[in-house]
């Protein structure tokens, strides 16, 4: 009987010894990797903080820019009211600015959302069911052909020298990267644009079996301005 008890104790003690050994090994190992990661982690937090601060500042700058644009247009309008020549130039100027994409615009339009098809994961040929850059270009092209006056992709205004590129699951427009879904906003006649997309042999015909496309007609959409026209200005000749 005493022997039995002894075995029981022995078992308990050895189990806990084993536990302790393993736990201590694990924790020293973890501490080592932690120390290694700590530097990286610090760097990451630092970067994250800088990004956040930068974003905040950029937002303030955006507000400031809008304010300034409004002030300028007030001056311009005041001038236009006093002088007929100025009025003519102003209407031309406003049109040119809208076409150049340097001012935010609003109006009726459509919002097209393109997404990888849910079948993509299940299909053997994955590439068939994901959105490619040529699909986005095709969509944009078709919207343009249907008379879109201003277009943005994920909040990036398309200007006369914008590019549309895909790298992996992200899209790059005007050098700015954003992730799927790709939301294309266009201002123009909604009925014409939707009709254009649905033409037999048109974009929807070509793409809707492969990727998920959602088209919404809207009474009012807003498209932001293109920020930073340094690229164009440097070509001043």
């Amino acid at each position: 009987m005493a022997n039995r008890k002894f075995y029981l104790y022995l078992t308990l003690v050895t189990i806990s010894t084993g536990f302790l050994i393993a736990a201590s090994i694990e924790s020293t190992k973890a501490r080592n990797t932690e120390r290694q990661n700590e530097k990286q982690f610090q760097q990451e937090t630092q970067l994250n903080e800088r990004i956040l601060a930068e974003k905040k500042e950029n937002h303030q700058l955006e507000v400031q820019l809008l304010e300034l644009q409004r002030k300028v247009s007030q001056v311009e309008e005041a001038l236009a009211q006093r002088q007929s020549e100025a009025a003519e130039i102003l209407s031309e100027l406003e049109a040119a600015r809208m076409m150049a994409g340097v001012v935010p615009v609003s109006g009726p339009g459509v919002i097209v959302t393109m997404q990888d098809s849910e079948q993509a994961a299940a299909s053997a040929d994955v590439t068939k069911y994901i959105v490619h850059e040529q699909d986005v270009r095709l969509m944009v092209n078709e919207l343009r052909a249907a008379g879109a006056e201003a277009i943005s992709i994920n909040g990036q205004r398309l200007v006369s020298n914008s590019e549309i590129r895909c790298v992996g699951p992200t899209i790059i427009v005007n050098g700015v990267k954003s992730a799927a879904p790709f939301v294309i906003t266009a201002i123009g006649d909604p009925a014409t644009m939707v009709g254009g997309l649905h033409l037999p042999g048109g974009v929807m015909n070509m793409l809707q079996d492969y990727v998920k496309i959602d088209i919404q007609e809207k009474e009012h959409v807003e498209i932001p301005a293109y920020v930073g026209d340094g690229k164009m200005d440097s070509s001043a000749s």
Binding site: L10, T14, T17, A23
Partner: peptide
């Protein structure tokens, strides 16, 4: 017995 229980203990811990 001690050996086995030590192993079990380690397994538990891991």
């Amino acid at each position: 017995l001690s050996l086995i229980s030590a192993i079990i203990g380690i397994m538990f811990a891991i």
